[in-house]
């Protein structure tokens, strides 16, 4: 099972963060009241005091944020090591998460364990695991692997499965389109990419579209 302590930490941060707007709200109200009182007391000094106190709140807010960000990355890295069974290490790849999907920007280390003699069965294993957990890392992995192996029908299928779980994973769109194109359905690939570009203005998708239009894929 995944690391529960990390999850607990995350939850605490989540709670704290949820409280921030509330605390800021209270602070603003208190400052507001204080300010008004001060204003009544001393009309001339008010402008200076007000900006000063305001700056203070904003600054502390930013500080908290930055701190958390750093902790976040470190902890996420620790947490996101995915280990694929069966364990006979043959290759370790490090991937930069595309960042456009999942929990914002996180970096993923995907330890990909492949035993040459059991390649097929470990794929099956991952397929099975996907059906259980619907983790797009699994389906995307399958889509990419099948694409590399030139099994375009399967690549298309797994890209689609990824898309079913999360429609915003750019890679799944790109693989889907590439796989379509490879199977000779150029028009469909073009159509899909056009739709996607209209929605996201993705540069990568535009580059790919251009390639497909020119028949390079």
């Amino acid at each position: 099972m995944y690391n529960i302590e990390v999850l607990e930490e995350e939850w605490k941060r989540y709670k704290r963060k949820k409280r921030i707007p509330f605390i800021i709200g209270i602070a603003v109200i208190v400052l507001g009241i204080g300010g008004t009182a001060f204003f009544l007391k001393n009309k001339h000094d008010i402008f200076k005091t007000y900006t000063a106190s305001k700056q203070k709140t904003v600054k502390s807010d930013i500080d908290i944020y930055i701190d958390r960000g750093i902790v976040d990355v470190a902890e996420k890295n620790k947490n996101d090591i995915l280990i694929d069974a069966p364990i006979e290490i043959a290759k370790v790849t490090e991937e930069e998460g595309t960042g456009s999907y999942h929990n914002g920007e996180k970096k993923k280390i995907h330890i990909q364990v492949i035993d040459a003699s059991k390649k097929k069965s470990s794929f099956k294993e991952i397929e099975k695991r996907f059906r259980m957990g619907h983790d797009i890392d699994d389906s995307l992995f399958l889509a990419k692997s099948y694409y590399q192996r030139k099994n375009y029908k399967k690549a298309e299928y797994w890209a689609l499965q990824t898309n079913k779980v999360n429609g915003n994973v750019e890679e799944s769109w790109l693989i889907f389109a590439k796989a379509k194109a490879k199977q000779g359905h150029r028009n469909e690939a073009i159509h899909i990419l056009t739709v996607y570009i209209r929605r996201t203005h993705s540069i990568e998708a535009k580059v790919l579209l251009d390639k497909i239009k020119k028949g390079k894929i």
Binding site: L7, E8, E10, W11, R13, Y14, D72, H102, N103, G104
Partner: peptide, 16 residues
């Protein structure tokens, strides 16, 4: 409620 929120975090429905 905490456990439900933890599950939601795990699944990415909410983020820190």
């Amino acid at each position: 409620k905490r456990i439900i929120e933890m599950a939601a975090l795990k699944l990415g429905y909410i983020n820190v």
